[in-house]
Structure formats: structure tokens, C-alpha cells
């Protein structure tokens, strides 16, 4: 549904996107993660047709998105910094969205009002709290019945109940209509619950793009009790991180977890306990970024 081919974008001397390639299939929820300044918001602005790439192409549904009204009509976007017109209330914004999006479902908008009971639709949106403004943005975006929903930090500022509500509506829309969702967030624990694909960005590039299960299956945390010192692993296993507490060593290893555990066991006679523990998305992100000189290596341990 979304295809990004070698997109390059520079702002003066600064190269914000350095050959981004990305592929999001229809009906997927794609989590875009990466450190600050990696280029996530920039690629999102390209995907929504705001920026024009210096090089490369961005296709949505097989067509370029830039200045393509027909394609943009199928894309709803919730930016990290929300914008509403001066003095506009929710109903006015609804009429505006309705005028612009051919697929806007007014009935659905009113049906969904029950999910957002605290929002006074006649109150100036700029006077609502940040979280409420976010709710209005989500409400309007989902009422557009888009084929593609692009969210930049969507639940930032929302209370836990509303977060769950938003994710729940989103997942049901995906299941019901095969809507494609691309979501950029730093809240990796939440992404882990909803995303089926993940792209990790760093230095203006997508460094890893896989399904979540694939990603989790290819990296593991192995704990081994080894009285003779650090366990050794063959070269085909890349050790991303290693730490120890007494005799207990913890290794973050790239590769098949079972094979890696077997290799640890085979590495020494006195190794007696080996545990394979699953990694969270947050841990995967940190270790992957750690490999790319990201400076939060020791956050978890």
C-alpha cells in the first residue's frame, strides 16, 4: 500500500533522509520507531504529500502522493503538532473535513461521539486540553474512513483509558476495512501490542524493517550460569550486549534463539543453567540502536 523507494531529502547542508526504503502492506499496522532526529517526522511528511523528495519516489496505492489529490483523499494524518483554525469548534472542523474528504462519514462521526463523552463539540478546540485536542484529531481522522491512516505520536498526552480506547478503535477499523496504519511513536510497549510490522529508522535510513514476530525471533536474551567466566559463542552469532551479575551472564544475541542457547551450552563444560528469555520491542530497539552507536546502551541493566 505504501512504498518508499530510496527517498533523499536535505534541508540546506543537513541530510534528513538518506535513501529511505520502506514497504507497508495493505491492512498492516506499521510501527515506525527510531531515535530523536532519525527522520521519522520527515518521512511521514513525505508520505502525506507535504514535502517533495529531492530524490526517490513515494507511492501510495501505486501512485505518487505529492500533489495527488485523489491519493491524499484516502490518507488521513494526525501530526505530532496539531493545528486547528482560530476559534473553530469540533463541529466546524468536522464540516471542514467533510468538505475536503470525499469519504467523510458524518453518521460515523456522530456515532463515535459516545467514545469521546468529555468533548464539548461547540467549544473552541484551542481551548480544550492537549489530550482532548488529540482525541478530536483522532475522531476527525477516523471519520474520514481513510484507506491509510498516518499517525505521528498519536497517544502522546492521552490518559491510559483513552489510549486503550483509541488503539481499540484503530484495530477494529483495520480488521473491518483493511485500513493501513503507519504509526510513529516512542512508546514501544504500546506499539508492541498493536503493530504487526516494525521499521527502525536511524540517521535518515530504515535500518531494520520486519514483522514483529520475525524481529523477536531473530534476537534473544540468554542467561547462563558460568563459574569459569564469560561463555563463548561461535562467530556466526552476533552478541549485541553482554553483562554479568556474579556468575550469571546475560547475553543479547542475534540469530536463532535455540541455536544460540545450544551454542552457549556447547561452549564450556561447567555451564549448567541456560535460559532463553523473549525481548520486548523496547529492548530490541535499544540493542539495535546500541549497535548503531546509540548512547543508551546501559539503560536496561
Amino acid at each position: 500500500m505504501i512504498q518508499v523507494n530510496h527517498v533523499v531529502k536535505s534541508f540546506g547542508d543537513f541530510c534528513a533522509l538518506n535513501g529511505v526504503d520502506m514497504n507497508v502492506s495493505k491492512g498492516n499496522i506499521y510501527g515506525l520507531v527510531g531515535p530523536n532526529g532519525a527522520g521519522k517526522s520527515t518521512i511521514i511528511r513525505h508520505l502525506t504529500g507535504v514535502y517533495r523528495p529531492d530524490e526517490g519516489e513515494i507511492l501510495v496505492g501505486g501512485e505518487p502522493v505529492y500533489e495527488n489529490r485523489r491519493i491524499k483523499d484516502q490518507i488521513a494524518y494526525i501530526p505530532d503538532e496539531l493545528f486547528y483554525f482560530l476559534q473553530a469548534d469540533t463541529l466546524e472542523m468536522m464540516r471542514y473535513y467533510k468538505g475536503l474528504y470525499s469519504g467523510f462519514d458524518e453518521k460515523m462521526f456522530y456515532r463515535m461521539q459516545e467514545f469521546f463523552p468529555n468533548i464539548d463539540v461547540r467549544r473552541n478546540i484551542r481551548r480544550l486540553s492537549k489530550g482532548m485536542q488529540k482525541q478530536v484529531a483522532f475522531w476527525l481522522a477516523i471519520s474520514c474512513r481513510p484507506q491509510v491512516l498516518i499517525l505521528d505520536e498519536p497517544v502522546d498526552g492521552l490518559d491510559p483509558v483513552m489510549r486503550r480506547q483509541i488503539w481499540s478503535i484503530l484495530v477494529s477499523e483495520v480488521e473491518e476495512r483493511q485500513m493501513t496504519v503507519l504509526v510513529s511513536s516512542h512508546n514501544l510497549r504500546e506499539l508492541e501490542d498493536v503493530c504487526d510490522h516494525v521499521g527502525i529508522m536511524n540517521h535518515g535510513k530504515i535500518v531494520i524493517e520486519r514483522s514483529l514476530s520475525e524481529l523477536q525471533g531473530n534476537i534473544s536474551k540468554i542467561q547462563a550460569a558460568c563459574p569459569t567466566g564469560m561463555p563463548k559463542l561461535p562467530k556466526e552469532f552476533e552478541v549485541l550486549h553482554m553483562s554479568n551479575t556474579g556468575r550469571v551472564y546475560t547475553l543479547i544475541v542475534k540469530g536463532n534463539p535455540k541455536e544460540a542457547a545450544a551454542a552457549v551450552m556447547a561452549g564450556g563444560e561447567q555451564i549448567n543453567v541456560v535460559d532463553i528469555l523473549p525481548l520486548t520491542l523496547e529492548e530490541i530497539f535499544i540493542y539495535e540502536m546500541g549497535g548503531a552507536d546509540y548512547e543508551v546502551k546501559e539503560i536496561l541493566f
Binding site: 511528511r45 502525506t48 504529500g49 507535504v50 500533489e67 489529490r69 485523489r70 491524499k72 483523499d73 490518507i75 494524518y77 501530526p79 503538532e81 496539531l82 493545528f83 475536503l100 474528504y101 470525499s102
Partner: peptide, 17 residues
């Protein structure tokens, strides 16, 4: 303003419009 420029141009309207 960047946030309004981004939002308005993300809507299904062309620059010509």
C-alpha cells in the same frame, strides 16, 4: 507556521487549489 503549513498541505487539496 510549520505546523499549519504541514497540516493544510496534508489535506486532499493541491497547491493550485
Amino acid at each position: 507556521v510549520a505546523k499549519s503549513a504541514n497540516m493544510i498541505h496534508a489535506f486532499p487539496v493541491t497547491r493550485g487549489e
